[in-house]
Nucleic acid binder design. Structure first.
Lengths: 209, 209
DNA sequence: TTGCAAATGTGAGGGCTGCTCATGTTTATA
DNA sequence: TATAAACATGAGCAGCCCTCACATTTGCAA
């Protein structure tokens, strides 16, 4: 509440801002330990005491940099999102026409799907435990940001269309993309692939007309 | 694990099957108390001790009918789903052509949206805490069941189309419908309405061609 | 009605986990 | 080298889910 300290790169909910390089390293060790534990057994089974132990840090230290367990997970989540956003920005960068957008979007979906399949942390955080309201807010902000990127391209390619409607459409397409990923990794691989393909068809059609 | 007792109407995870009418009443009181507490502060803040107190039942009794906290929530969730499924079955019953399907689907989406907006329990369970893996499985089964209803109608109206593809498409449309509802109630009303409209356009287009 | 077994009800307390805080240690600065 | 501020530590507190040994009620046969 009364924290006036400015957030650094993906250190949103820090209780004490690490000003010495030693503690920067500590924070990284904590996050690495948390990621490893989540990859092993999921964020629900992750115990704060285990995180501290694996990071070779006392629980007290842990709580000096993260106000609670959720904050650790949220920090990891935001790093995942930042990585994803970078992909999207890159992918949409050179788009010149609708055909190009379709191609770029299609490839982006595949890339994202691959990331969801390969990254246990990403899978756990987004497909799994969303108990935290703040995590859902982060998810929402992510969809919004990604939707804005898409909407920008779309409104450039279709200047005659209503910008507001375009924005809603782009937001929804991005959000439903995430939902599709979550669904796809919850079922067997073959069905997941088919569902992702079905999503692509739906989304691409949205770019036409 | 070793429970051979058959599940009754929406009593899936019961530890002891209520054979006396008195205990039926008790179970209903427990569920009503849980629903009320969820409506007030969300399932995350719901304490088992509070549920027992409000239902005028001891905690021990509570745990005779529900193996754990998740089971209470899941039972409530399945009741919601059953209610929703009934709506969908009714809505799709008289459909004779694609135009009729579009109209029925559009109305169904509005009905569902209204339910999400009005029912705090539904909102909490589906948009909120999905910490439980088994809850997500219930969600998935629900989408699948609803998707099957839609796929049946679709394959009747378009006998030439590939049934497998149709099934995937219907499953996805239903699941993304839920995702859209969750999204819509997370933002302000005006934007939520617009997003639901955008979803409808996307979904209806899926029924054509 | 009475007596007995099975079903049902009870709530103090066990166990686990997130988190705090009083105390000790290291670092930066003069 | 002295002093203050930043940083580190881990025993223990608080709170919650759930169990279990014991009490009560119900169904039913004698």
């Amino acid at each position: 509440m009364g924290n006036e300290i400015a957030g650094e790169l993906h250190m949103p909910a820090a209780r004490r801002s690490p000003s010495q390089s030693r503690s920067r390293e500590r924070v990284e060790r904590i996050l690495a330990a948390a990621a490893a534990l989540i990859a092993e057994a999921g964020s629900d089974a992750m115990r704060m005491s285990d995180v501290a132990a694996r990071a070779k840090v006392s629980i007290g230290s842990l709580y000096q940099y993260f106000p609670d367990k959720g904050a650790v997970i949220r920090t990891l989540a935001e790093r995942c999102n930042a990585q994803g956003r970078e992909c999207i920005e890159e992918g949409l960068a050179g788009v010149r026409d609708i055909a190009g957008l379709k191609k770029a979007f299609s490839e982006l979906v595949d890339t994202y799907y691959g990331m969801f399949l390969a990254e246990p942390v990403m899978r756990d955080i987004w497909s799994g435990t969303q108990a935290d309201k703040e995590l859902r807010d982060i998810d929402l902000a992510d969809s919004r940001a990604n939707g804005a990127l898409l909407a920008e391209v779309l409104s450039r390619l279709r200047p005659d269309a209503d910008p507001g409607e375009l924005a809603h459409s782009a937001f929804l397409v991005m959000h439903l993309g995430e939902a599709t990923m979550r669904l796809a990794i919850s079922v067997d691989r073959a069905e997941g692939d088919a569902l992702v393909e079905a999503y692509k068809r739906m989304a691409l059609r949205e770019f036409e007309s």
